[in-house]
Design a protein around this nucleic acid. Structure first.
Lengths: 130, 130
DNA sequence: ACCGTAGTACGGTGACTATCGTACGAAGCG
DNA sequence: CGCTTCGTACGATAGTCACCGTACTACGGT
């Protein structure tokens, strides 16, 4: 009970989310965040959108609580940045930060994910004609 | 009691380890395997050695049981290949397989790890003079 | 044959995690 | 003001995980 947004007094805790500083981002944390199918899906779609997406723009096959959980893991590991925008919470990849910290990593992971999807659609072969 | 090595009858189960086929290797599994500091250390040293290393060549700060566990995770996720050589168990990175499946991934992760170590030795700045 | 070295198997434990449901808070719209 | 939509908080639960210790197997040298 330090800052009530309802009263409109101050904006100290008014929906401000805590993000790790660049120096706080750990490789293990990022890899762990990306090692979950649900979260990798989020990152994939976020990368494809190349902009901000609200949490509800993702059609994840889990409940809202679980969705919140996954987005928090992504945010706390430094993979995404979240900001409130009205009632919605927008998500954006921290592309620049990740690129500075771990050059090429995000691109490799996304390429690997896309390559794996391609193989799954195929028959499991690394590379074969259609 | 299907194949006793002591009796020298057959070699069916004689220390043959099960490795995932290339088509069985999953990105999430690889990322999960790499998201543990202990296992990332193994991969790092294995990459630096550019050859085979026995399990006991690593001075991991855990017991043998735990070491076995970590090496199994790495093997079952498709990151390393293990073969028995006398009483020792040799470990080698599956560089070629990983490169074919996920081009550039291993390199990016190793580079990221090395970059992070560099920052840790520094003060947490992404890039600054000595 | 014996012993040491390398690693496994098994059983256990505490911590974390992915999931859920329900209840709640915050912003916008009528 | 009420209602709806979006997301959070709080348990709760079942599963996984990293770790240990002890007992065991396998290979090689003496």
């Amino acid at each position: 009970m330090e800052a009530r947004t309802t009263s409109g007094a101050d904006v100290t805790n008014a929906r401000v989310l805590d993000h790790p500083d660049c120096a706080e981002i750990r490789l293990e944390g990022v890899l762990h965040a990306l090692s979950d199918p649900m979260r990798l899906t989020v990152v994939r779609e976020l990368a494809a959108a190349s902009g901000e997406l609200s949490c509800s723009d993702f059609a994840l096959p889990v409940t809202k609580s679980t969705t919140t959980h996954h987005f928090r893991v992504l945010r706390e590991s430094g993979v995404i940045r979240q900001t409130y925008r009205g009632t919605a919470k927008m998500n954006a990849l921290r592309r620049q930060d990740l690129e500075t910290l771990f050059p090429g990593l995000l691109r490799s992971v996304l390429a690997a994910d896309s390559a794996e999807s391609g193989r799954a659609a195929n028959g499991g072969r690394p590379a074969s004609g259609p």
